[in-house]
Design a protein around this nucleic acid. Structure first.
Lengths: 344, 344
DNA sequence: TTGTAGGCGTTATCAA
DNA sequence: TTGATAACGCCTACAA
């Protein structure tokens, strides 16, 4: 057996004497068959080596269990972390993921989205930030953004303002004389998440009258470039605040790790007058030579919520049919303060 | 326009007065249309807001441009690196990737593979090692393994024996008194790649009469567990070779990074009597506090070769039709010695 | 260069 | 509980 290359319902039907319809029912409403007939069909499937064909099923039912994922890059561990959490939802929800790395290339991303739609994905999860949400909102499938501008689409984001606030608070509570925030200089869009981290940071500083300064860096997306930038920031900080106890909050663990490495190379340890807090709780923060205190994003929760939200929206769409795009849902996830060695 | 939810060839045909066939030709053999008619159809597509439907196309043609990817875990940066390189081949080859993380769970992986086949993937790229290749070889699509047991399937692997040899050579050439190899204790299958690294390492040692020792560790797949194991190895090494210049070759950069961190925490720098070489050239090796010398795997080449091999096999299958499974092709990629600070 | 008709492998509808 | 028949949207002979 298992010879004929492609066994279909038709083959099973002929083999068992039932009709295609009954075979289909065996899979979709097994309760409607007698025990006996179910057994007969089960045996036939086994005998002939049947393999299901979702493509035909998708065409007939219009339901693919496929979700598209658009990543901005694979340098920041945060994205990998989210990706890995998304993939892990398979066991709970059964969605399969077609994954793309847009690489910050807007035209590639547009093309890729068209491709994804052609595969009848049921929804799209977007972590990249090149395409504005007003455009994504026009797509014929629900879109959930994660940690990105989300004015017109659903989204899952960390409470970045709170995160920024807590970073400042942590550093302040450890007796820092001056609070410094190193972040990337992005388009001056107040709707991107890292902007709110700044807001939170500043809020704390002004509420508590803390001396502070921000450093807006044009970080590239590779290690060497970032290292160069961090070096220069660090030189500036050492020059401007030679005697103060410095509390440095970086907008990503990746940046924080580079900074910690610099300091350790220079001093053989983390000097007492440098306290560091990163953001994300990505693997680099835990695995750094000095484990880095960080404001953690709950990526597992975020990924799960994203899939859940998508599933709900898909269902809503199917029932409402007349695709009255529902109001964007914005789900905010609490950040988690994770204190490690760089603030003690 | 762009109102009707789902525009098909039928709609375009009616709108333009052509038949469905002609619309299909517009996409598949545009040269067979006149300039004028091509323009007419192009306009209609635009007007009606047509979106292609690959699902129907796959069903009709039996060609999906979909490749399945099975990852073993997302802890080792090597897998992420390969994944990212695979995704990047999209621009050259146009394949889309459905990605799974099997998480070392054999039954999940089996189920997942069935799912992938149901989506009519054209081929499967497997990095996980739970399912033996003899079983994978029976699948109705070509399978390419990357750095895994590959007796019965096609594969892309680094020349691990050469890599192990070169690691020993590098350490020896820097004047080490004793060469130590720390590797994971896996099933005693001589066909798994890391086994060949040991072979290469031992080959060098015996050829050159170098003092050496191996440490077979039962590494878990998380940082904390690995850290604990590395600590104990390190204690053993310090005890057994107190005065010798120690050359340590670890079978993964992840392990090497943990070891470097330990030493730096202890000594504030890398002591002169410890030389370290990792394996993979994954991001951790470059981004470690002391950049780690490593035997690099050329992940970009490997990913590209994997996709290429898959494409060739798919074509071969299509033409040969009578699926006379061709002999497994094993492509070996040269390792690259990358010297950084841990061996100088 | 264009059109007709049948097929790809499922599911949905309506009868029986 | 089961079966005929018509979708789903595209492709491919074959014919014109």
């Amino acid at each position: 057996m298992a010879d004929k290359t492609n066994i279909t319902f038709d083959d099973i039907a002929k083999y068992t004497g039932f009709s295609k319809t009954t075979i289909s029912r065996y899979f979709n409403r097994p309760a409607s068959l007698t025990d006996r007939n179910r057994k007969i069909i089960a045996d036939a499937l086994e005998q002939l080596g049947y393999r299901e064909n979702k493509v035909a099923r998708i065409l007939a039912r219009g339901q693919s269990d496929l979700i598209g994922v658009m990543l901005p890059d694979l340098y920041h561990h945060f994205y990998l972390d989210v990706l890995s959490r998304l993939l892990a939802t398979y066991q709970e929800f059964g969605y399969k993921f077609i994954v793309f790395n847009g690489n910050q290339n807007e035209s590639v991303e547009r093309q890729v989205i068209d491709e994804l739609l052609a595969y009848k994905i049921e929804g799209l999860i977007v972590l990249s930030h090149t395409i504005p949400s007003i455009e994504l909102a026009k797509l014929p499938v629900p879109v959930v953004g994660i940690e990105r501008e989300d004015l017109y689409i659903h989204s899952i984001s960390t409470d970045n303002e709170k995160g920024g606030y807590e970073a400042a608070q942590l550093l302040d509570s450890r007796g820092c004389d001056v609070l410094l925030h190193v972040t990337s200089k992005e388009t001056p869009n107040i709707h991107i998440p890292s902007h709110r981290r700044i807001t939170g940071f500043l809020k704390y500083c002004s509420e508590h009258g803390s001396a502070h300064r921000e450093y807006f860096m044009n970080f590239p997306h590779n290690y060497d470039g970032i290292e160069k930038h961090i070096k220069s920031v660090l030189a500036g900080i050492a020059r401007d605040f030679p005697t103060q106890k410095k509390g440095i909050f970086l907008s990503s663990d990746n940046y924080a790790a580079v900074l910690v490495n610099q300091l350790v190379r220079q001093y053989g340890r983390l000097p007492d007058d440098y306290l560091i807090v990163g953001f994300d709780n990505s693997s680099v923060s835990r695995e750094s030579v000095i484990p880095i205190s960080t404001i953690g994003q709950q990526t597992e929760v975020m990924a799960r919520e994203a899939v859940l939200l998508l599933r709900d929206e898909v269902r809503k769409m199917r029932s409402a049919d007349a695709g009255s795009a529902s109001e964007p849902v914005h789900r905010i996830i609490e950040p988690v303060v994770i204190e490690r060695a760089t603030t003690r």
